[in-house]
Nucleic acid binder design. Structure first.
Lengths: 235, 235
DNA sequence: TATGTGTTAATTGTTAACAGTGTAAAGTAT
DNA sequence: ATACTTTACACTGTTAACAATTAACACATA
């Protein structure tokens, strides 16, 4: 019996006593019954996502050492997929690894590096905006708006980690639209590492307004306005 | 018996008949007898390095599909480490992977993306220069000079793939000096992907002069000159 | 005490077998 | 012929056992 079916029958994987983390695989792994084909997400991506959440939320503090065996137990898989994820997150910059010793959670960026990252992010997202401004479809604009709505809800619910991830998803969506996987590949390590720093967002209105400005600029196919909105949002 | 001893006694791993690639593991894996401790490089890093060479050189053309089993045979290891390397190179942008299907060599960057990459690289390397300009040591400067010498030799020998890799190593060295692993992590995927494009370097003098200008600016602790030299070299 | 050398337990690295998935050829019906 | 199924096979994904390495500790030595 395959892993996916295991998850489907179990639903929730037992959480580690130590840090009380719980993941619901069923939510995303199963195809909905109401004819809506929810995207199937690989086991490895789900583990990666859970670990990213733990790091962004601070549940896994910087310098925390990860144990492959423990992680495998927590997610109910063998060490193989766990090692894959560790490799991935190491390349993303969330973890640091040392041969034959292990991996641990990376430290937040220094202020200097943070400043550079902001500058690079702006350049990348402005580039993406230029590429997509003439071709973005109504459907794509609607998707971006739905992400803004989701951010609002998550803010109200106080789910700051998910909020941060949705914020990233918003930007990721149009970065990929504009530059495809190639652009995403250089954008992602910059952004994910930046997000190790700010764990909470204070102002909901600003959050919504800034992102709405971006969408509106896209809709108006106004590159200059898009650049301005992006610059204002990235900080 | 361990892998390293296998490599040490065998020396060369038999190459794949198809593309006649040969790797000499012994060269780097063995500690020199003359009191010089050559750095030991993990099996995975050696495989990654070989594969990067194949892609940069063009021996593995864009869209070529990789077969894990074949690669494992070629390097005389099992599929495990090979999968690790594939994951790594995918994150670096040299390969593209699809779940349950496999991975293949990525395409060169579009001109637009190439232009953006150049701009980002400049920003990153200028940042590194600023960070290291006051603290770089004579020994570190000498190392950079030795890399320039190596580039000259490789050019004379017509070893263009190794030349490209040494060029990368030169920049990598000072990027890491200035910004550590964090900076390297965002710099590397940009650079390695750029290098899929230009396979040969025509002018040896220019190559040497441009890099020498960078080192000289570092030595003079002249940030402005360093920026200028870097800007001139990156294109 | 300070230094260096086994020894051991914990952890990562590697392997080979097995399970699951996608692809393309062969077959079937319209 | 064309479109749709079926099936076989090659390939990737996962697992659990085994190997190699590390770091910490105990011990010996000066």
């Amino acid at each position: 019996m395959g892993r996916f079916l295991d998850f489907a029958s179990d639903g929730k994987i037992q959480s580690l006593a130590e840090n009380k983390l719980t993941i619901d695989f069923r939510k995303q792994a199963i195809v909905g019954l109401g004819m809506r084909a929810k995207k199937i997400i690989s086991v490895r991506e789900q583990i990666a996502d859970a670990l990213r959440s733990d790091i962004i939320s601070g549940d896994l503090a910087p310098n925390t050492k990860l144990n492959e065996h423990q992680l495998a137990e927590r997610f109910g898989v063998s060490r193989g997929p766990v090692r894959d994820v560790i490799l991935k997150l190491t390349k993303e910059g969330l973890l640091v690894s040392k041969d034959n010793v292990g991996s641990s959670v990376n430290s937040p960026l220094t202020p200097d590096m943070q400043k550079l990252s902001i500058a690079l992010r702006k350049k990348i997202e402005e580039f993406a905006a230029k590429q997509l401004i003439d071709t973005i479809t109504d459907q794509e604009l609607e998707h971006l708006e739905s992400l803004i709505t989701k951010m609002e809800e998550l803010f109200e619910a106080g789910e700051f980690t998910e909020l941060t991830k949705t914020d990233i998803a918003f930007h990721q969506y149009y970065v990929e639209l504009g530059g495809g996987d190639s652009l995403l590949n250089i954008w992602y390590p910059i952004v994910i590492r930046m997000r190790m720093n700010y764990h909470r967002i204070k102002n909901a209105d600003k959050l919504v307004d800034e992102h709405t400005d971006i969408v509106n600029a896209f809709r108006a196919r106004d590159y200059k306005a898009a650049v301005e909105a992006i610059r204002k949002n990235i900080k």
